[in-house]
Design a protein around this nucleic acid. Structure first.
Lengths: 117, 117
DNA sequence: GCCTACATATAGAGAGCCTACATGTAGACT
DNA sequence: AGTCTACATGTAGGCTCTCTATATGTAGGC
């Protein structure tokens, strides 16, 4: 229904961006659309968030970009580097740990007795 | 193993704090220990995070506090208000939506075909 | 006296996500 | 020709929250 709380996105944006670039290179605008599509409309990330984040990820070497002109419009297309691929794997693993940890605090009753450990 | 990335905690701290106060009132120091215990040691939230957060949650009405002296030491004990109880329910629901949304972007292949919608 | 555990609090730093704004092309409609 | 929407990228500044570092004080063991 409502959008995801922006504060909650903190620290997960990198994973989201790397993830949508896993299958194919995309330019910024298409990345935003892909995020919305994959999330079933729950994520509408503003350009002021995405573009700086992409540049940051390129700066640290997880992404590489090149300009292209399609239909008279200029696009900067980003792709995962091998470093970015490794980072994405780490982000996924961190995500699973994160949800496990927070979940265990938020809903301790949901833990199966035999699953302790 | 490693601690949870601090940035990832953003926007979830409120839920964590309200959650550990659900069963019984606790003072700040005990809240920190409860978070560590419930998370199996994965969460070690610093006092500089917890104390200001507790005061903020009291300011907005989710918590109420009173001073007590136990063994010569002063404690400020926090408890959930009825508003805080409602808020906790909202936080839990938001958490489930959040994990669903991020998960659907991070691991779209994990989605069962019959679970679409 | 010194050290550790218990217990609370504040100041300032740091990071990143957001709003708002700026810039420009292409195509449809009037 | 003028206007509007969709496409497409970018920056500046603000905001909020978490963290580090520091300060204060009691109780108990050595």
């Amino acid at each position: 229904m409502g959008d995801v709380n922006p504060d909650a996105l903190r620290g997960h944006m990198d994973a989201l961006l790397l993830s949508v670039l896993e299958d194919e290179p995309l330019h910024g605008y298409a990345i935003i659309e892909a995020l919305t599509a994959r999330s079933g409309g729950a994520l509408t990330v503003p350009t002021g968030t995405v573009y700086p984040a992409l540049r940051r990820l390129e700066r640290v070497g997880y992404l590489a970009s090149e300009w292209a002109t399609v239909g008279g419009r200029k696009r900067r297309t980003y792709r995962l580097t091998s470093s970015g691929t490794r980072q994405l794997a780490g982000e996924r693993s961190a995500w699973r740990e994160f949800t496990g940890v927070i979940g265990s605090v938020l809903e301790p009753d949901a833990r199966r007795p035999e699953a302790a450990g």
